[in-house]
């Protein structure tokens, strides 16, 4: 029996109907879940990093003793000033910078080192994996704040030290996520096929594994960033973080705390910023996770 060539060239039937017909339930709501926190974050980032470049913002570390304890909406000081005459708005913006910088750096370090660590562990398997993961377990077993405090204390207060201290907590977390994601992929036929095709191990990790675990890692890093910002604030508040004259949200809350009964806004204003940023990052992470179908 012979078959015309055209039949062999014929392509397969169209997509599964059920998939095409699957309802996009609450599609607009899901869009809002990402759009709202996204916009808030973009606005915050703009004011923290771009605004001071184009518009005059008072120096956050130079106070004016004639203008202390100005209330909200004072001319020239929208959010007022604190007990030593620092402009609160300016301190919020510069403090936000620190928060975002620390969060981004910690996530990046976690992503690169932790991600690689977990991927290598999972892909190699066997003893390598067992040893590598036990090392991580040691880090994870410590209560994160205590561990971070201990490291920050031994390193001494500075922004880079805070970043390293917080990374001690983000690297194992990223490693675990990356390991779990890689484990799911490792025995997928397309990875086996790549090995059969003769692709080198590092290339498989870079070209096959990395793009496939990227959505998961990115959503996790947004959730992680939200936590990092809180932790960084806590470190500052406890005096193990970035030293006092530098404006950070944690420092502002720490100094404001002494005057909480007289001037509650000194604590409330930075706390609101801390909270909103953290919630937005969290929502963003959750929203993207739902959209990308990441578990």
């Amino acid at each position: 029996m012979s078959v015309p060539a055209a039949d062999l060239l014929a392509s397969a039937p169209a997509q599964d109907l059920r998939a095409g017909a699957a309802p996009r339930a609450r599609g607009w709501l899901r869009n809002l879940e990402i759009a709202v926190p996204g916009t808030v974050l973009v606005v915050l980032l703009f004011f923290c990093f771009i605004w001071p470049l184009v518009y005059h913002v008072p120096d956050p570390t130079v106070g004016n003793l004639f203008q202390v304890n100005l209330p909200l909406w004072s001319p020239g000081h929208i959010l007022g000033t604190d007990t030593v005459g620092y402009d609160i708005m300016s301190r919020i913006l510069y403090g936000g910078r620190v928060s975002f910088e620390v969060a981004a750096a910690v996530q990046l370090i976690g992503l690169v080192f932790g991600g690689l660590f977990g991927m290598v562990a999972a892909y190699r398997g066997g003893w390598t994996e067992a040893v590598m993961m036990r090392i991580l377990d040691v880090f994870i077993a410590f209560p994160s704040l205590v561990l971070v405090l201990a490291i920050a204390d031994s390193l001494g207060p500075s922004e880079t030290h805070v970043i390293w201290a917080l990374s001690a907590f983000s690297i194992p977390a990223f490693a675990r996520v990356s390991r779990a994601a890689t484990l799911r992929l490792r025995d997928q036929p397309f990875v086996v096929a790549a090995r059969l095709a003769g692709t080198k191990t590092w290339r498989i990790m870079l070209r096959h594994l990395t793009p496939n675990i990227a959505p998961q890692m990115l959503t996790f890093s947004l959730l992680g960033a939200s936590l990092t910002i809180i932790l960084e604030g806590a470190l500052d508040f406890l005096g193990y973080g970035i030293p006092a004259p530098t404006a950070t949200w944690g420092n502002m809350i720490a100094t404001g705390e002494s005057f909480i009964s007289v001037y509650p806004r000194l604590v409330i204003v930075p706390s609101i910023f801390l909270l909103v940023t953290s919630i937005c990052l969290n929502m963003m992470g959750d929203g993207l996770r739902a959209r990308w179908g990441v578990r």
């Binding site: 997928q188 036929p189 086996v192 096929a193 059969l196 096959h208």
Partner: peptide, 16 residues
Amino acid sequence: LQMVFQDPFTSLDPTW
């Protein structure tokens, strides 16, 4: 020596 797998979707990298 090459191989063709059962599930055509998982045997191809979805990002490529």
